[in-house]
Nucleic acid binder design. Structure first.
Length: 483
RNA sequence: CGGGAUGUAGCGCAGCCUGGUAGCGCACCUGAAUGGGGUUCAGGGGGUCGCGAGUUCGAAUCUCGCCAUCCCGACCA
């Protein structure tokens, strides 16, 4: 990355030098988030929040289209309630923040700040569900949650974060399983088509399962530094929570029985995933579908440009807005065009339209792509069409590039020595046969830092011996060092 | 939570060792000229030196405690 053009951005640490510093520089310089006085609690700045709003819109539409509705549940959970489901408590206890006082008075019972809402929602479902006719219940909530983390990083792992959590209840085990996988499928389709982030969907191992779940599924993405990011989870909770909270209904067979529940979520962590999937040494690269501004128009300020160039630029802006493009006209007089080019590149705007006196003469504009930096002249009267098709092309190109990257970094071996070497060198996914035993998984983790990300559906049938212990393999597992 | 590092203007840093009341670059403000890849000149504004104690006539500087951030581990739905 010694190209002359790359030298313009000097305030971001190159990825190759220190990926972690690069990430933090991008978050800060692109004004996505900022630190606050409390450890792990970041402020999401307007530009970062605009990305989250686009993510919300896209997901919300998909949830609604599959019959889900939104609701809101409280932030506090009484301690006694949290204790109801044994595995759940055990899993979350170390990460729960507690409220002990109301004003100056000590509370009779401590209140947990929700780390997730299964228990509070479970108690309500117990009230709301009486009959099989009340099922399924398909509710989603957009909210914040708090998990006391020891190591925090903006977006990737924060003490407080924003997310959506879906909670559903069903009549049969099969329906609950169907729901669990339907959502996982939505997550995958969303990640790939909107975030241009290829993900591997599959089942979590027993030890990586959600506390209290029967089965956990995830989508896993590969970041630019070769580490995996869990980008979303969907849990089949079986009847575990229904039993703990008394979610019962009278069935078609007149028998009183426990409901089958699921829960699923994605969080602001996805923004971190987008940054680390597409970003480069000049900063952020946003897929058009989650770019708050898909196009920035930079008028070339020459001579009395405010009277000659600016009206034309405004005209193009209006036409693009009418065509449904999120566009911004950068008419600031205090910056030169070159400065603006670098600034918007750092912020990841997918397309830049330049218009100057020469373009007006020739009835054209210049369009530059953020991902490839290619520039092209396009006729003025074809701006809407060309911009829209270019936005599509960029969206596709980002997914294709990220997919290629993942393929290059995904290897397959049944040999433990080779496995270890790969995890040390340039990491990535390694697909290996595994025996299904937790002790073996733990040994691999302590020796190589690699964990089982998930076991994809429709993969190869397990065959041969476990790469670590030699016992018969029960699954082909995708291993990686994870965030 | 363990080991290491850092905290001085919005950002990056110097000053600290050897105590004497804060400086540089960029950014910011004003004006003019510029303007097709971070423009130039001139003038100007901005700092509880992370927070709190202590030592001292005097603390950014020395001592102690706390907080935050970063890196490496442990832990992590």
């Amino acid at each position: 990355m010694t190209d002359k053009k790359d030298a313009f951005v000097t305030e971001i640490t190159p990825q190759s030098q220190d990926f972690s510093s690069w990430y933090l520089d991008v978050v800060r310089k692109a004004e996505l988030a900022d630190y606050t006085a409390v450890k792990g609690c970041m402020a999401i700045r307007p530009y970062g929040f605009a990305i989250w709003e686009l993510i919300q819109q896209e997901l919300d539409r998909r949830f609604k289209a599959t019959g889900h509705v939104n609701a809101y549940f409280p932030l506090f959970i009484p301690e006694s309630l949290l204790m109801r489901e044994a595995e759940h408590v055990e899993g979350f206890a170390p990460q729960v923040a507690w409220v002990t006082h109301g004003g100056n008075e000590k509370l009779e019972e401590r209140l947990a700040i929700r780390p997730t809402s299964e228990v509070i929602i479970g108690t309500l479902y117990a009230k709301w569900i009486q009959s099989w006719r009340d099922l399924p219940v398909l509710i989603n909530q957009w909210s914040n949650v708090v998990r006391w983390e020891k190591v925090t990083r903006p977006f990737l792992r924060t003490t407080e974060f924003l997310w959506q959590e879906g909670h559903t209840a069903h009549e049969t085990e099969a329906e609950a399983q169907e729901e669990t996988l339907r959502i996982l499928d939505i997550y995958k389709e969303f990640a790939e088509s909107v975030l241009a982030m290829p993900v591997m969907a599959g089942a979590k191992s027993e030890s990586e399962k959600f506390a209290g779940a029967s089965r956990t599924y995830s989508i896993e993405a590969l970041m630019g530094d070769g580490r995996a990011l869990q980008a979303g989870t969907s849990h089949n909770l079986g009847q575990n929570f229904a039993r703990a909270f008394g979610i019962q209904f009278q069935g078609r067979d007149k028998v009183l029985q426990h409901a089958w529940t699921t829960s699923w979520g994605v969080s602001t962590r996805l923004i971190g995933g987008v940054i680390m999937t597409h970003g480069d040494d000049s900063g952020l690269v946003l897929p058009p579908r989650v770019a708050p501004q898909q196009v920035v128009i930079v008028p070339i300020s020459r001579g009395n440009w405010q009277e000659t160039v600016l009206p034309k630029a405004r005209d193009i802006q209006a036409r693009l807005v009418a065509a449904g493009v999120r566009v911004r006209l950068d008419d600031r007089d205090s910056y030169t065009p070159g400065w603006k080019f670098a600034d918007w590149e750092m912020r990841g705007v997918p397309l830049r339209v330049e218009i100057g006196p020469k373009d007006i003469e020739k009835q054209q504009v210049v369009v530059a792509r953020r991902d490839t930096r290619e520039k092209a002249f396009i006729p003025m009267d074809a701006v809407e069409d060309r911009v829209r098709s270019l936005l599509d092309e960029v969206q596709q190109a980002l997914l294709a590039r990220a997919t290629k990257f993942r393929e290059e970094r995904t290897r397959r071996t049944a040999d433990y020595a080779e496995f270890s070497a790969w995890m040390e060198g340039r990491p990535g996914f390694v697909i290996s046969p595994w025996c299904g035993h937790a002790d073996c998984e733990a040994a691999i983790k302590s020796e190589t830092q690699a964990t089982i990300r998930n076991m994809p559906f429709g993969g190869d049938e397990p065959s041969g011996a476990c790469l670590k212990c030699g016992r018969p393999a029960t699954a082909q597992a995708w291993f990686a060092k994870a965030y």
